[in-house]
């Protein structure tokens, strides 16, 4: 039949396309659940619990509301990227991965699309939180907006790896239902909901080793103005490596299985 006329070749970039990235982003943006937990809930937390601290300042004179806003931006971004990474698990549970194996799409291109979607969602979470903050009176120098925002956003990449990792470990359609509470606990330990200083000493020591601590500290560092702490940086690097390595290993095991 058309054998002679069909141009048979492999897709460029393993089948990764901007068109599919766009389609994927549009898809997550119309998921009301996702939008609620990522774009509505964190700013709502700010309005409910953050604004009551209006007028209070940190030791260096910065607004407490700014501190809370940045913390909640980190929280929004980490929920966004985790759920983005975990989408791989959801789609595997639905059998979509198997369907994709009947196409030229390379698994790496598929995962790259998911991670980039997660990052776009994470960026949106940070932006929405910042806009709500700015509108309700948060005032910080331009470099704080920029560097805190970038740290919250890029730091959340570790949670895209976390979502992927957990997704490969527990491939279930409802993976976010048990990841949600875990994220809340991690956020608490990372000092995103209340400053770690109010926690008991033992908890504070434990908190320093949990995965949200590093990104939270780094995102607030420009505001606190006391420089980047080595401990926080080390925390971020180690957890990124752990989750990235874990996700990578499970990804290879998953794709090797024929």
């Amino acid at each position: 039949m058309t054998t002679t006329t069909v141009d048979r070749r492999r897709p460029a970039f393993g089948g990764f396309t901007l068109a599919n990235l766009t389609l994927e982003i549009r898809r997550v943006l119309r998921n009301r659940r996702t939008l609620f937990f990522i774009l509505i809930m964190p700013p709502a937390f700010f309005l409910l619990f953050g604004l009551s601290n209006r007028g209070q300042t940190l030791d260096n004179g910065a607004q407490v509301t700014a501190y809370i806003m940045i913390s909640l931006a980190v929280y929004g971004a980490m929920v966004a990227t985790t759920s983005g990474g975990a989408m791989v698990a959801v789609e595997r549970a639905q059998g979509w991965s198997r369907q994709l194996r009947l196409t030229p799409l390379r698994p790496a291109a598929y995962v790259a699309t998911k991670v980039l979607t997660a990052m776009v969602l994470g960026l949106l979470a940070v932006l929405v939180e910042f806009v709500v903050g700015a509108v309700t009176g948060v005032r910080v120098p331009a470099h704080v907006w920029l560097f805190s925002g970038l740290a919250a956003w890029l730091g959340s990449l570790v949670f895209a790896a976390f979502g992927l990792f957990v997704g490969y470990l527990a491939p279930a359609e409802n993976v976010m239902q048990f990841l949600g509470p875990i994220l809340a606990i991690l956020a608490m330990l990372g000092g995103l909901f209340v400053p770690l200083e109010v926690l008991p000493e033992v908890m504070r020591q434990i908190a320093r080793f949990t995965p949200v601590y590093g990104v939270g500290e780094l995102a607030r560092a420009p505001l606190a103005g006391d420089g980047v702490s080595g401990g926080a940086l080390l925390n971020l690097v180690l957890w990124s490596t752990a989750f990235g390595f874990g996700a990578g290993r499970l990804f290879r095991r998953d794709t090797a299985r024929v």
Binding site: V6, D7, R9, R10, P11, A12, G15, T17, A19, N20, L23, R27, R30, N31, E91, Q94, G95, W96, S97, R98, Q99, L102, T103, P104, L105, A109
Partner: peptide, 22 residues
Amino acid sequence: GGLLKDMTVAETVQMTANVYPN
């Protein structure tokens, strides 16, 4: 082979079409 329930029929086909060069 599973399908993504939240996508429309046309989107599903479009998404698959995008991974083919031609």
